[in-house]
């Protein structure tokens, strides 16, 4: 019986990892193309959640969850055009400062627009409840969430690896100078990838709004976990992030099972160990610009 409980925690951890993945993958993508660690990523997650809750009251749940990420992706285009673009080739510390400042700005803006008490948000009652498969119990909502994450993951992978668009992006990541020599302007490609990453964060916000507190500082709560995932997986590595997100979810669940008090600390211990043994992250490439 003990083993069943443990397996249940492992599976639940994988589901949770899927949600981390949605945020961390965008963070990693933006770093890959722009070389900027986007500390404002959590801010876009928060805007996504707030927009989704506001729209749910007008359009209902499903349209809100679809519209919100696209609206935030559009914001992401503005973010790229007017802010991020100036920092691609700058000292990484400047990009950090810019996005950190933006994160604080957005948090305060949310306070001004929506107020500081949390927004109340509820999911449609037909999505509530548990599904029992054999000995395992799942939240119905999280299974749907997992399916969405899987679809997004496959979509992004196909986009990057099976389309002409993805070829340019990947080439641009590795040798921007060569891409330029071939006469391809990288700018629009970078802008699109950044909008995509930011939109994924917003999708995570919209999907998680019904099951977590929607409050102005929710972005700064999630950015830390997202960052831990990216660091463990290796900055810039697609499969590294996937692996790390699932690992973080499972390690957290297992720790809570055996040593509840260490639950939140476990992911940082994991990051510490990974950095100690493999500084570039599980599947990360060597990063010359930081060495």
């Amino acid at each position: 019986m003990q083993l069943v409980f443990l397996m249940e925690q492992v599976v639940n951890g994988l589901v949770l990892g899927g949600y981390y993945l949605l945020i961390a993958l965008g963070l990693s993508l933006i770093f890959s193309v722009g070389g900027v660690v986007n500390l404002a990523h959590g801010a876009f997650y928060a805007i996504g959640a707030y927009l989704a809750v506001t729209l749910t009251n007008m359009t209902g749940f499903l349209p809100a969850v679809v519209i919100s990420p696209f609206a935030v992706a559009a914001l992401g285009l503005l973010f790229e055009r007017f802010l991020l673009r100036r920092f691609y080739s700058a000292d990484p510390i400047l990009g950090l400062l810019l996005t950190f400042g933006l994160a604080m700005l957005v948090e305060q803006a949310i306070r001004m627009i929506w107020g500081s008490p949390p927004l109340s948000s509820v999911m449609p009652s037909e999505l509530k409840g548990a599904v029992i498969v054999g000995d395992f119990l799942f939240s119905r909502y999280r299974l749907i969430l997992l399916a969405v994450v899987a679809a997004v993951l496959v979509g992004v992978w196909l986009l990057l690896h099976k389309t002409p668009f993805g070829r340019v992006v990947r080439a641009g990541i590795q040798r921007p100078d060569m891409v330029a020599v071939l006469g391809i302007k990288l700018q629009p490609y970078m802008a699109t990838v950044i909008a995509l990453g930011v939109g994924m964060a917003a999708l995570a916000g919209a999907l998680f709004a019904p099951i977590t507190v929607v409050h102005p500082a929710m972005g700064s709560e999630i950015i830390i976990v997202a960052f831990v995932v990216v660091v463990i997986g290796g900055l810039g590595s697609f499969w590294g992030v996937v692996l790390a997100a699932l690992l973080v979810g499972v390690v957290r669940g297992m720790t809570i099972h055996f040593m509840p008090a260490a639950g939140e600390a476990s992911i940082y211990v994991l990051m510490f160990l990974v950095l100690l043994l493999r500084p570039r992250g599980l599947l990360g490439e060597r990063m010359e610009r930081f060495e």
Binding site: F5, N12, T212, I256, P260, G263, E264
Partner: peptide
């Protein structure tokens, strides 16, 4: 009883323990 850190936002592992 489960002691839960103040910054926990995901309760699913604890809810599984409740069910157990």
């Amino acid at each position: 009883d489960e002691l839960i850190a103040t910054d926990v936002t995901d309760f699913s592992p604890y809810l599984l323990k409740v069910r157990q």
